[in-house]
Structure formats: C-alpha cells, structure tokens
C-alpha cells in the first residue's frame, strides 16, 4: 500500500466519523426548536436564566457529574420513572439551552434531570450543598462548605442565611457560586410535556 493511499483512507475514515455522526446528528437534533405550551403560552423547554447558566458551569466544575447523571430513561426497560427521577423520559429537545450540555456516565447518586421539580425549595438545596447529611443522615454525597461563607451575625438575621444553629455567632451565607448552582438545579425540571415525550 502506498503512503498516499493510506493517507486517503485515514482522512476518509475521519471525515466519515465526524460528518457521519455530527453532521447527520445536527440535521436531526440540531435544528430542534422549543414548543409553545398552548395553555400558558410559554416556550418549553424554558430558556434558563443567566444565573442558572453560570450554575451549570459550577455544577460541572464541582464534579457533580462524577456521581449523578442528567438523563431519565424509560418507561420500558428502565425503572427511572418508577424511582421518581422524572415524570417522563429525557429527549434531545430538553438539552436545547444547556451550555455545556452534559449527560454524565455514572449513577452513584440519583439522576438529577428533574431535581428542580423534586426539591422545590431553594433553601433545601442550599442545605444539601452545605451539608447533605442535614437533610438525609445517610447521604454519601460530600459537603461543599466552600460554596458558603461565615459571617458574624448582626442584630438582624440575614434573609439568605441558612437555618443552621452555630455556637460561634456566625451565619452561613451562600456565595454567588452556591446561588448560581441552586438556580441551575432548579432549572433542571422535566415537568412539561413535549410532543415526543408527553407527560404521563
């Protein structure tokens, strides 16, 4: 085999690998648009806020994907819906506004595709981030206290402080990163119907 023939085969294979998957994939799922909910007249999936988009990067940088996935399967062949991780399966359109779009490849912890619908109170999510065992004593999730700062309690209780009793007269206040992460987690919500994945 001549070197030019070998080079042509290599380049052709790479072209087929990238074009065959990315270009064809783009024509199939890259041009998806949000759908309009006829009852609320809102776009679904909704565009996440800027804070939630920052939170997506905090989510990635804290390595949450090492234990959590972001893709609900089912209903056939997978118990994800029975486990209560979502009311429908995840589809391509759900990832329309995700930046970065992440799926995760591990489930040491539960899937988080619908966590915004499962834990609705931002304070509960904050409490989980600060110390997961505040909410569930057997949690294996590591704490993230560096996403919070300690401030000496003033005469007035700060509205953002977590309801954690401390002996040192300090309050636990979420940083911007914690707020962004919670905004992102709240934006992970599959509680809307799509033509290809209607709600149960």
């Amino acid at each position: 085999m001549k070197s030019t023939q070998a080079l042509a085969i290599v380049l052709l294979s790479l072209l087929l690998t990238w074009a065959g998957q990315v270009a064809l994939g783009y024509f199939q799922v890259g041009k998806l648009e949000p759908v309009i909910n006829e009852e609320t007249n809102l776009r679904e999936p909704p565009t996440p806020s800027g804070l939630a988009q920052t939170g997506a990067r905090v989510f990635a940088s804290e390595g949450c994907l090492e234990c959590h996935s972001l893709s609900v399967r089912g209903p056939s062949g997978s118990p994800d819906l029975t486990r209560g991780w979502g009311e429908r399966r995840s589809v391509s359109r759900d990832y329309l506004f995700r930046e970065p779009a992440l799926v995760g490849f591990s489930r040491i912890g539960p899937d988080l595709s619908n966590i915004g619908n499962r834990i609705k109170e931002p304070k509960d999510l904050m409490m989980h981030l600060y110390n997961p065992r505040n909410l569930k004593t057997t949690s294996t999730c590591p704490p993230h206290p560096w996403l919070f700062e300690m401030k000496l309690a003033g005469p007035k209780h700060e509205s953002e402080s977590l309801p954690i009793p401390r002996k040192d007269w300090k309050q636990v206040i979420p940083t911007y990163q914690a707020k962004a992460l919670v905004a992102y987690l709240q934006s992970l919500n599959l509680n809307y119907s799509l033509p290809e994945a209607p709600l149960k």
Binding site: W18, G30, P100
Partner: peptide, 26 residues
C-alpha cells in the same frame, strides 16, 4: 464545536461522544 459557542446542546453531546471515541480508539 464544544467551546465555540454555536453548537446546539443536543449536538454537543454527540461531539463529546465522538471525541471520547477518537481519543481512545483512534
């Protein structure tokens, strides 16, 4: 494709998987 800011979310996932394959198997 992943950090150029123009690739739609669902396509980014395809790109991530292609890159994972290229790095390991090619």
């Amino acid at each position: 494709l992943l950090r150029g800011g123009t690739t739609p979310g669902a396509v980014q996932i395809i790109v991530q998987l292609v890159w994972a394959s290229v790095l390991q198997h090619l």
